[in-house]
Amino acid sequence: MALKVLKSGLLTTIQDLGRPGYFHLGIPMGGAMDRMALRSANLLVGNEEDAAALEAVFVGPELEFTADATIAVTGGEIPVRIDGEEKPCWTALAVKAGQKLSFGFLTSGARIYIAVSGGIVTQPYLGSRSTYAIGALGGVDGRAVAAGDELPVGTPKNTVQAGTSVPESLRRKTGTPTELRVLPGLYWHRITEAAQKGFFEDEWMVAPEADRMGYRFKGGRPLEFVEREQPFGAGSDPSNIVDSCYPYGSIQVPGGTEPIVLHRDAVSGGGYFMIGTVISADMDLIGQLQPHMPVKFVPVDMEAALAARADRKAAMGRIRTELAGG
């Protein structure tokens, strides 16, 4: 069984839950930008939650199936078409050999996940099939999928009844604005009190440059730094620090003007100060933000961050229960 790629869309990559454990060597975790959507897509087709699927950003690909299969499309809302006939998102769909999958215009979110029963079984690298194109790791020979590719699909383990779906209430949506919770970090003291307040007061917009490495935001007031003599090893700009590790979710602000939230394919270190870190519970939401969407950053403490993480786990648990019973 294979998935034939007829059109690749804008940038469609093979992603699973990534390759944690190598960030200290400069190799990012990679993996789905919206992990809950990937897990849900896999559950809907009877796969393990960490099986590899396709992540398509803004534009869906066009695919043909060489054998009968079950598929599911999750993440953003998009018209799903099988041989031109419109089908629902977040639902197990039966496809027959020779049928074609195509998509309309995205109606919400930014990324869709296309899972197929059996999962995509390209060669794993460092424990993951996730595509890290800059490092030429994973994916199809280290790259995104292209027209003409035939993606190998594994043998399905479990069957899920066609029509099974994740209820609307369990799908997470971006807001207007989307609120991203932030835990202020080690370098918080580097900006003035007015700047600390302003960062959370202002509304920010996703910049068109936002990608899998990082999401850039524009529109808020520039940050004012507390004056100091730059320490040895730090660059001359007040937003520079002596090089440090960059965690997943950390918010750097080069020059104090446009915050960048590092995401799945981020660099692991560098010399920009970080305001803090977007909590892990809200990182999936960033993956569903389109350019020009409004965002507010909301300060939280560690206790709130851990509670939010527990909430996300519970929400994923409800999806598992729902699909196991369905």
Binding site: L10, F58, V59, F105, P208, P291
Partner: peptide, 9 residues
Amino acid sequence: IRSPLPGIF
């Protein structure tokens, strides 16, 4: 004519 993409036109 509609845009399939978000961004700057």
